[in-house]
């Protein structure tokens, strides 16, 4: 139980840190890193809850996280291509950021 709380708390902390950084930083790359760390926090919470003190861990959250990782990376790739296109068009005007 305490292992779950310890690691689950770390997941919550990662999620909140990511949310904070996502809100306060302007550059696209920093926002992407923030949102990825936020997602990692959610994954970490799920993995922590799957741990059952000695017994084999619950495989269902593991499978959910596995699909989640792949979706997160494909979304990151799409966002980076959007960012590159934006740069090629001259970037975001200063007053619209």
């Amino acid at each position: 139980m305490s292992t779950q709380l310890l690691y689950g708390g770390a997941g919550v902390a990662l999620c909140v840190l990511g949310l904070w950084a996502f809100l306060v930083h302007r550059p696209l790359l920093r926002k992407l890193i923030a949102i990825n760390i936020m997602g990692s926090g959610v994954f970490h919470l799920l993995i922590a809850l799957a741990e059952r003190d000695g017994a084999p861990p619950d495989p269902v959250p593991h499978a959910l996280v596995l699909t989640g990782i792949v979706v997160a990376v494909s979304a990151t790739a799409l966002a980076l291509v959007f960012g590159r296109r934006l740069d090629e068009q001259g970037g975001v005007p200063e007053d619209e950021r």
């Binding site: 690691y7 993995i47 922590a48 799957a50 593991h62 596995l66 792949v70 990376v73």
Partner: peptide
């Protein structure tokens, strides 16, 4: 450490590596 080697492999290869 949390007993999720499958997910650890995927995170190392996909999340950290490709991302």
């Amino acid at each position: 450490r949390l007993g999720a080697p499958d997910v650890a492999l995927a995170e190392a290869a996909i999340g950290a590596g490709l991302g």
